[in-house]
Write a protein that binds this DNA or RNA. Structure first.
Lengths: 169, 169
DNA sequence: GGTAATTGTTTTAAGCTTAAAATAAATTCG
DNA sequence: CGAATTTATTTTAAGCTTAAAACAATTACC
């Protein structure tokens, strides 16, 4: 009778203390706070210093990685934003002379977006300064902190991707 | 002559390898990726499951923490968004019956925003499920990972705040 | 070769977001 | 007390963002 106390307790615990996930919630909120803080600062500096928005900077950053542009769909995947969103963003960057649209020679549906020479030059000027802002924002972390954080965020990224894929409805 | 090799090398290194901050940049991009992934998933689930947007959920989350509502300015500070943004957000939540506006009894400029009873009940239903989504998204991290990440993000938050304050123009 | 399904992009409608200007009430301080 | 400043909110104009629908070109495959 009483020797069943242990398994019963374990059972009771499982029922009365179904795991609570407040810790994960706090972790998520802190992650979001860090991103919001840094992003807000970068956004403000880009505007004040170069009169450019963060989405435009991000788009140019993707294009600067490749020599000859990429399609809207590629941009969309890499930037993790919708296609429709990019249409307008590219419109504005074409209007300001930073990028150009070219019909893909191999697929007449597809548009290749590329930086103009001046667009690339302007981006690189901004990017060089941007790098210092980021270095300053993370400036109080040691090299070890940065390594650890990088690794843990890598693990978080994989975990999130796994969870998202798993939802297949 | 040759015994000056060491200081000269150190000097040379400092000149030819002015610190590059690509590591911090990668760290920032990874942080942003994690946030974007998780936020996108939460946004989609809130819409599909409860037909609510993330900003509305966030606003209600702030209000649920207090018994009697808070002013628009308080909400603005806590949510790290502009006042003007909240005006419209509150308008829509008033229209849907989730919150109410009351003129502050002590300051006729200020509006106190509070959850209605049904708004609070509805929020708590959503929040309970939301907690599981977050737990799942972070599910592959060990308790130790979560603790480490929490600490490192805490340090990051302080570092960013220090950098932002320091910019006082 | 011709329909069907897929892929690439744009459009649409709605909502979110910001900075800056405007409005209005409270506070400061001469 | 009363003008000047500060604080709380709203309005405005512009841009960002998404999901869903529409459109157009390509690919699959019978």
């Amino acid at each position: 009778m009483d020797d069943q106390a242990i398994p019963l307790d374990a059972e009771t615990k499982a029922v009365e203390m179904p795991e609570d996930h407040r810790e994960e919630l706090r972790l998520w909120l802190r992650l979001l706070t860090c991103t919001t803080l840094i992003e807000g600062d970068v956004r403000r500096r880009l505007r004040e210093r170069f009169d450019v928005t963060l989405p435009r900077f991000d788009l140019m950053a993707q294009l600067d990685k490749v020599p000859d542009g990429m399609t809207l769909s590629d941009l969309s995947k890499r930037m993790m934003v919708s296609n429709g969103n990019l249409t307008g963003l590219v419109d504005r960057l074409v209007a300001s002379g930073h990028v150009v649209r070219t019909v893909s020679p191999t697929d007449r549906r597809a548009t290749v977006i590329s930086l103009t020479d001046s667009g690339r030059a302007e981006f690189r000027t901004m990017a060089a300064e941007h790098e210092f802002w980021i270095a300053d924002l993370f400036g109080d972390l040691t090299a070890r902190d940065r390594g650890d954080l990088m690794r843990l965020l890598g693990k978080t990224k994989l975990s999130a991707r796994r969870a998202i894929k798993g939802e297949a409805q």
